[in-house]
Design a protein around this nucleic acid. Structure first.
Lengths: 294, 294
DNA sequence: AGCCTGCCATCGCGAATCGCGATGGCGGAG
DNA sequence: CTCCGCCATCGCGATTCGCGATGGCAGGCT
């Protein structure tokens, strides 16, 4: 049988006031009721808590111990009410998310929408960064969780699988490769490329793949966003690499063709990273779990 | 209105089991009763704690917060029962006391007897030490509280007044000073002394007083206890200094005379010392308070 | 489409708990 | 001896609580 907080509170009052009568007056309850609760408490704990005289009461050694323990326990209970008041008033948990453009444009919108429906009290702050910046931000506690493209990262983080995506070649409609359904990467190196900025996962992948076959990439221009990449390719400045979902999205509007790359490395993995899952605020853990199930 | 531990426990079970029905079975209570308590809890906290479906329940963000807070609070309540079990089984608080012989022989017996009557559950361990050892032991946490003769002590302790006592001269019955009712210290230095061991408060006091009038003490012998001192003086080896109560006690049995010292420093103060009163176990604080009121 | 199942919410009922006023015992003060 | 203030106990009525019964809902199966 668990101890009753009302009786503990009355007991504390009795010890503080020195008499059951005074404590009863303070707590707006009949002295008889206090007396009975104290007797019950002593029965439950099987020890005498008070020495009773016709001048009032005095705590026993056990009673003094109980007063201190009871104060702590009641403080915890009161703290529950205080902490829960934020929910009662509509205040929210807050999660800081950094994600790369691949995740943001392909998967996060739908999943965050679903999460917000389920947990309307949780507020999400989302920033788009390249993968290396994402992992660094999580490590530095500038973000609660990050979504990045898997690759060699020196930073020690706790990670979870998120989604897979695939890179495709995009070319202007009148490009020699535009009529192809599929292509090997090596063939593409005969043409000019529109590249993404240094440090982006795609740019790293591009230069790495070329290096592995002793070739170089002919970069006509480098841009900093997928949109800019699509526009440049559509304008005929070169070909480029793009996540498949994005390519499909932009193909019709920007007059570009998406061509499948047959190389194995074109398949990529997006991952979720956190500093330490167990140390995350509750709301962030909820979001991680939600994204993992997405 | 304070939160009800029974409802909090049921809430935790529900979250852990995932359904009200399973939690009800686990806690041996009807599901209807659980359902009602949960609804009441949500009313008190003015926030939704669970999303209910026909497949069971799922905690809201508020509910997850509450589970963690409730676990802590319930642990505190359970801890009360555990800690109080010692009293139920008769185990006691324990206080380690170091005191000098003056306190032990004159005041402590009666006062400790009164304390034990009042707090029979508290156990006292008493060791006799000289004042410098007493203060050192308290500083080193080898004792909870100490009683010593006030004097220059480098150790920083929290102290309280205890009792005053007075040193008197004791002499063998046939000694030239034995017929005197009172004497000045300077006069006594013309005779041999039986001294206490180096480091004792009385020995320090003796040598300090002599030094202040540019005289030396002629120590025929040094002993380590008051009993030995009395026996030596009774045997005629010299005169000595002793607390008045002890001197009166031993005078008749050992054939010695107690003569009042007229010097101001013969009046002494006994003090209680602790490392930090607020940090003491409850039982030790009770004893300190009892001794202060003695 | 209909039926079955498992879940949750609500209700009325009886049992248990709780606060109250009345009463009595006790010891100290006047 | 009387009075006062304290605490303990009791009987009573009000309140709370757990139970079984009932109903609504949605998913799964036929």
């Amino acid at each position: 049988m668990r101890l009753d907080p009302v009786s503990l509170k009355l007991f504390i009052s009795v010890v503080e006031e020195g008499t059951i009568a005074a404590a009863a007056a303070r707590e707006h309850i009949a002295a008889a009721a206090v007396s009975r609760r104290l007797a019950d408490l002593e029965g439950v704990l099987r020890t005498s808590l008070l020495n009773r005289t016709n001048k009032g009461v005095e705590p026993t050694a056990a009673g003094i111990t109980l007063v201190n323990l009871a104060r702590r326990a009641l403080h915890e209970l009161d703290d529950i009410a205080v902490q829960m008041a934020d929910y009662a008033s509509g205040a929210r948990g807050h999660v800081r998310v950094f994600a790369n453009i691949s995740a943001i444009t392909q998967f996060l919108p739908g999943e965050i929408k679903g999460f917000r429906e389920r947990y309307p009290q949780v507020q999400i702050h989302l920033e788009e960064k390249i993968s290396s910046v994402v992992t660094r931000a999580v490590a530095d506690n500038a973000a609660d969780l990050g979504i990045y493209t898997a690759g060699p990262h020196a930073i020690e983080l706790e990670t979870f699988p998120y989604h897979a995506d695939r890179l495709v070649l995009i070319a202007p409609k009148d490009h020699p490769l535009a009529q192809r359904r599929r292509v090997c990467f090596a063939e593409t190196l005969d043409f000019d490329y529109v590249g993404l900025h240094t440090g982006s996962a795609i740019n790293l992948q591009l230069t790495k793949a070329a290096s592995e076959i002793d070739r170089t990439v002919r970069l006509a221009i480098q841009v900093t966003s997928y949109d800019a990449l699509c526009v440049m390719v559509g304008a005929g400045l070169g070909i480029g690499l793009l996540p498949e979902a994005l390519a499909r999205l932009n193909a019709r509007m920007l007059g570009i063709r998406a061509i499948r790359l047959e190389d194995a490395w074109a398949g990529r993995e997006l991952r979720i990273c956190v500093r330490a899952f167990d140390a995350l605020p509750v709301a962030a853990r909820l979001l991680v779990n939600h994204l993992r199930l997405g």
